[in-house]
Design a protein around this nucleic acid. Structure first.
Lengths: 338, 338
DNA sequence: CGTATCTCTGGAAACGTTTCCATGTAAACG
DNA sequence: CGTTTACATGGAAACGTTTCCAGAGATACG
């Protein structure tokens, strides 16, 4: 049926051991023999059988990637960060997406057991403690945007609280005293951290609202942001600035304010989070927090490779920066503008 | 080291053959034996070795997915369509992204050889004819948004030309006679097809421009759309309507028109393509063409499974619908509006 | 009771590699 | 020239499954 190493060996007039050595770049092969084997392999269009190879080497050449249902560009960006790096180091990516609940993640992890050399799991809704029993004990794992406090796993997280604080400080510095927030879902650790940063910055600036007075849930979607904005802005004590926990909700907010005839930033200042590509093209261009999601993905693969190279190394827990990008939607002059 | 089927067999007091039968749900096992084996497997936390299994069954349980550098939500949507369906049928997704050039695709395909039971390849830039030599002969393949004319492969494509025609007809019906287009890149088959539909509809309506008079390249990006819009609108014979070959460019166009103080749709009508989630929240809400990308992904997996079930079946070539969604950016009243 | 049939189980070959060990040859050395 | 050393190669075991084939009981039948 298919062509095996034995066919190549016969054709080249050598043993299978020699063919294997050539294929794996061993030094112990005479140049002339090497050429003969390479020629035979090419002529027969031989491809090594990965399963047989994995069976004996105990390496699969594959990293598992388990992701939640992601909004906007986040999904593609994180993969774009991981994929080239993994490929460069000889690894493929086995992907399983749309896992938000614990049961789904457990199932996905179970299905990947024994099929991967390492695991990247993004789990903003389910913490490391709950996940731990279903994580394989002998395989390196990197947790992404996951509540990993005190867990023995490597973890990478966006500095959500820091980014949120920067936004609120910026709004406060422009003179706003009633700063509202469009929250994400409670289960989501990104949402909780952004909320925490918001409240911390309010308290730090001595402003009201640290108790949640001007918060409204928007579920990270455009429609939710639209709804939450209407709710906040119609109140008698309406905030004069809105911090949206992601840009999708900010888009909904801009749309709602526009419908109400309220000017941005004249009547209400708006800021988002994530800095999606269109943020700079909205009217007005949206102040946001830029997150290097691409780097997040890259770093996850780097950590996995490190753990594989040195299995004894202790787990690494790192933050990825989240930087304020000032544009016109808050009323401050954007840098570089006349 | 790790636990094998032999350990389970010993523990349950049966042979490895019986354990294998239990694991694969064979009927030929006594209930009591089955329970004993299942118990032993659970106690030992046994996971079958996928490599050994693949080696003998000649199935990997994996579909390869090769994707180009995708814009916006397209990437995540197509995967969201494929992933649950594949998983439901017992398959994993092995992903390789960011392949636009022929060499990159060939490399990715080579690396997947022998590791997958089926292949989904999205290749808007490289046609099936050029791809054919590097596609494995014995593995089912589904081509996505690829120039597959006359090729022996199954292929799925968005009805780009049909969607573009619908947009132009709509603009013409509103009285526009100078309709411009923001094109994508020439190499991209989606871009070419949308351009074809645009020109066909112009000719059909007896309007000028079918020769390319009002076309400008925008590269499918916000920045490109911004630039191309400035270029077209500043001409003495500026068009009164702009068909943007995707929504990202439409966002750039709206931004450019806003900067110039031109009203949409009052001074210039704008329409996009793709109907990304934020399209309805732009100001004004953007007329676009909705493409069921999710369905595209689902259908690809369905075709792969069909081909696997009946290897003799002839290839299938299908179009996925692209439907006009009227919103306010063209001046027509959106359906459902007062 | 002997034979045929059916159900369940075990032994062992096979899948296609990698790698350890042994072997053969040629070169280097005294 | 005999011995050691280095290098290149081959033979064969091992990896953990699945599955074919055969055999052992048990049941049904005449």
């Amino acid at each position: 049926m298919s062509i095996t190493i034995r066919d190549v060996a016969r054709r080249a007039g050598v043993s299978v051991a020699t063919v294997s050595r050539v294929l794996n770049g061993s030094e112990l092969v005479r140049d002339e023999t090497r050429r003969r084997v390479e020629g035979a392999a090419a002529e027969l269009r031989y491809t090594p059988n990965g399963a047989a190879r994995s069976l004996i080497t105990r390496r699969t050449g594959t990293f598992g990637v388990v992701l939640p249902d992601l909004f906007g560009e986040f999904f593609s960006e994180v993969i774009r960060g991981m994929d080239p790096l993994a490929r460069g180091r000889g690894y493929h990516l086995l992907l399983s997406s749309s896992h938000d609940e614990q049961r789904e993640i457990e199932f996905a992890l179970g299905a990947m057991r024994g099929r991967v050399d390492g695991l990247v799991v993004m789990s903003p809704n389910v913490g490391a403690a709950a996940l731990a029993p279903s994580l394989p004990p002998d395989t390196p794992v990197v947790l992404l945007n996951c509540d990993a406090a005190g867990s023995p796993f490597s973890a990478l997280a966006v500095d959500n609280a820091g980014g949120a604080r920067a936004v609120v400080r910026h709004l406060a510095s422009l003179g706003h005293t009633r700063i509202g927030m469009l929250r994400g879902g409670d289960a989501n650790v990104d949402a909780r951290e952004r909320q925490r940063g918001y409240r911390e910055a309010l308290a730090e600036a001595g402003l009201e609202g640290a108790g949640g007075r001007w918060e409204a849930p928007g579920g990270f979607t455009e429609a939710g942001g639209h709804r939450a904005t209407l709710e906040l802005v119609r109140r008698p004590d309406a905030p004069t600035a809105l911090f949206c926990a992601n840009d999708s909700m900010a888009v909904g907010a801009l749309s709602a304010l526009h419908e109400l005839g309220l000017g941005v930033p004249g009547d209400v200042a708006v800021a988002g989070f994530d800095d999606i590509p269109i943020a700079r093209y909205l009217s007005p261009p949206l102040t946001s927090v830029h997150v290097d999601v691409h780097r997040l993905g890259e770093r996850a693969i780097e950590l996995l490779c490190q753990a594989l190279a040195d299995p004894g190394a202790p787990p690494v827990q790192e933050r990825v920066a989240a930087d304020l990008v000032v544009r016109r939607s808050c009323g401050a002059r954007a840098p570089g503008e006349a």
